[in-house]
Structure formats: structure tokens, C-alpha cells
């Protein structure tokens, strides 16, 4: 009973990740892609707990899930900060170019 429930839940979760992969594939902006990666990462933490239930070793897999959730959060923050900084650098370069044109 638990096994069948875990298999059905895991498969459904996996199938519902396909729209996110589509969003990574087409997503017009880099932020769309990062958002989809973030959602997939959060769901992977759940998927790890489900796999642990199937193997009967939830006490072990829960630790992996915690580590994955932490890593996912840190990666989202880091990438958003990185994109932010890149933009300000781009603005700086444009200003420099404008100065050069003026000179």
C-alpha cells in the first residue's frame, strides 16, 4: 500500500516537472529559467523523501532532502545576485561608451 502510493506520487511528481523543463527550454528571460530550476529543486527534495519511503530508509534520505533544500535556496540567491551585478556592470560599460562618444 505505502509502496504503491509512493510510486504513484513519485511518477506524478516527475510528470509534472516536464512543464518546468519546457519553461527552461523556451523561457524568454534568464529569470524564467532560474525560476523553473528553483521549482524543480524544491520538488526534488520531496522526491528524495519519496525515494526514501520506497527503500524503507527515510531516516537517511531526509538528511539528503535537507541538504538539497539548503543548496537550492543558496543557489537561487547567488544566481539572482550574480545577474543583478552583471547588469550594473553592463550599465557601467554603457556609460563609459557614452563618455567616449562624447569625447
Amino acid at each position: 500500500m505505502i509502496d504503491w502510493f509512493s510510486i504513484v506520487m513519485g511518477t506524478a511528481l516527475f510528470l509534472m516537472m516536464i512543464p518546468m523543463v519546457y519553461r527552461i527550454w523556451v523561457g524568454p528571460t534568464p529569470f524564467d529559467r532560474m525560476l523553473a530550476v528553483n521549482v524543480i529543486g524544491t520538488k526534488t527534495a520531496v522526491l528524495l523523501v519519496i525515494i526514501g519511503t520506497l527503500f524503507g530508509r527515510v531516516d537517511m534520505f531526509v538528511d539528503f532532502a535537507i541538504a538539497y533544500a539548503l543548496l537550492n535556496f543558496v543557489s537561487a540567491i547567488v544566481v539572482s545576485r550574480y545577474l543583478n551585478r552583471t547588469v550594473s556592470l553592463r550599465d557601467m560599460e554603457e556609460k563609459e561608451k557614452a563618455k567616449e562618444v562624447e569625447a
Binding site: F31, N38, D63, A69, F73, A76, S80, L83, N84, V87
Partner: peptide
């Protein structure tokens, strides 16, 4: 332990959403 993950996600999901949102708005 599982509830600790739940609590952690409860705090971090809106935070990472806000970080991405802000990065996009400043871009």
C-alpha cells in the same frame, strides 16, 4: 526532521522568490 524541512521551506521560498523578482526588476 521532516517538519524542520517544512519550516525551512516556509521561510526560504518567499525569500528566493523576492530575490529573483528584485533581480528581474532591476534588470
Amino acid at each position: 526532521k521532516i517538519m524542520a524541512i517544512v519550516l525551512f521551506l516556509y521561510i526560504t521560498c518567499p525569500t528566493s522568490t523576492h530575490a529573483l523578482m528584485r533581480a528581474a526588476f532591476e534588470d
